[in-house]
Design a protein around this nucleic acid. Sequence first.
DNA 1: GTACTCGATGTTGTATACACATTGGCATGC
DNA 2: GCATGCCAATGTGTATACAACATCGAGTAC
Lengths: 233, 233
Amino acid sequence: MSADVALSAAEQVVALLREQILNGQLPGGAPVREQDVAAQLGLSRTPVREAVGRLVAEGLLIKDGNKTAHVFRPSLAELLEIYEIRAPLESMAARLTCEAADKDFVRDLERAGKALENAEPGMAWSRQHEAFHLLLARGGGRRRLELMVTMLRVQSEPYVRFAVAGDHQFPQRAQHDHEEIVRLVASGDGKGLERLVRNHLLATSKQVSNLLAQAASAPTASHLSRRSAGRPR
Amino acid sequence: MSADVALSAAEQVVALLREQILNGQLPGGAPVREQDVAAQLGLSRTPVREAVGRLVAEGLLIKDGNKTAHVFRPSLAELLEIYEIRAPLESMAARLTCEAADKDFVRDLERAGKALENAEPGMAWSRQHEAFHLLLARGGGRRRLELMVTMLRVQSEPYVRFAVAGDHQFPQRAQHDHEEIVRLVASGDGKGLERLVRNHLLATSKQVSNLLAQAASAPTASHLSRRSAGRPR
DNA sequence: GTACTCGATGTTGTATACACATTGGCATGC
DNA sequence: GCATGCCAATGTGTATACAACATCGAGTAC
């Protein structure tokens, strides 16, 4: 994608762990032992330790005291709080994106919308969904806003994926909103877009939390309903 | 303040550096060399390195490539972006705080308001101002929201302090808003509070940026107008 | 005089070794 | 059988040593 020739080991570990958490290879609650990761990657603990520290600061890993770090798994209340924060930030970012959108951007967004519409429900759809919303979160060049939205999305993304897995009509229900989003950006209606994105997020929040509550009361085979997961070798 | 008996060295370094950045002992742009800090504190580079990493993730330090970390100093555009983000987050947090406020909390806030009113313009006022707004950012127990608001405030706080130093009428002008905030919390008007806090922040943003722009064009003795600062020994 | 090379010095990145904390199991006492 | 305390195994926190990269200045070619 880009010419990142000289990434430090620590940064590579950050990227790898983040990817594995997003993939679900490292499910919520899974322990992340420094030596294990180091041994797996043929590194010393030092860069791994640094990577873990950063991911803790980022909120993807949790650590208290001198205990082993674990993959972040929000309670229902925490997940709702994340969406509460995302709603104003992401809707504002969308408005700013809209206000700064040129023709090229509109075309890119339309393409992403099409790709999302045609994606198979499951992992492919999740990827497209993420890409679509990250485009919308550009914020007209506001890097910090974009970064914060990205981090918050990453923290909640695994749970959206879970919801999609448990309810294959989920994408279909969101489709209308996505089409409307593209339309509003194309017509330059920033205010309307802001409202819509906010409502879209709050609706998603409700659906995801309902599915999670459901899964918690009727435990399926999903890792999301277990309280602890074995180490991934 | 509290029983923090067994803080790791790294955490102590984090606290110390953060304090020094807030104090202005480490002004914006100042280099933070790992061995220097380590030597000063009688530690090895390892915990210092970890502390630096965390502060970078927090946004208080900046580092690109393998170069020395520097204290974060936002451009005018970045400062405005921070306030843009703070406005919706902090106003929402205030509303949630208001909705969850009991009598004890209202009393505490009133006290903080009085303390702020009576504080001398300068460092004392800045401290009280920070304490007042952090109370307001509690968010009814939403830890993550509170944490994010706190981090964003810390990043912009040094510049408010600068503005207060350059314009001693700054506190006086803000006083009306602060009184109104206390009144709205006491009367339980969450919606009104949300609007007011948003406007208060945007007004502050304008004043601070005006003063900064002014200082940049007519360079005073302040470190804030210089592009690089020597290492603090 | 200018620009470029190259080396000396300072600073960060990583590996390794050891000290301290945590955890889980087992023995012991009740 | 159950609770409790002790101990070994495992894992994190820190120190030290070394390697890789960056920075700055002297010297040189033009």
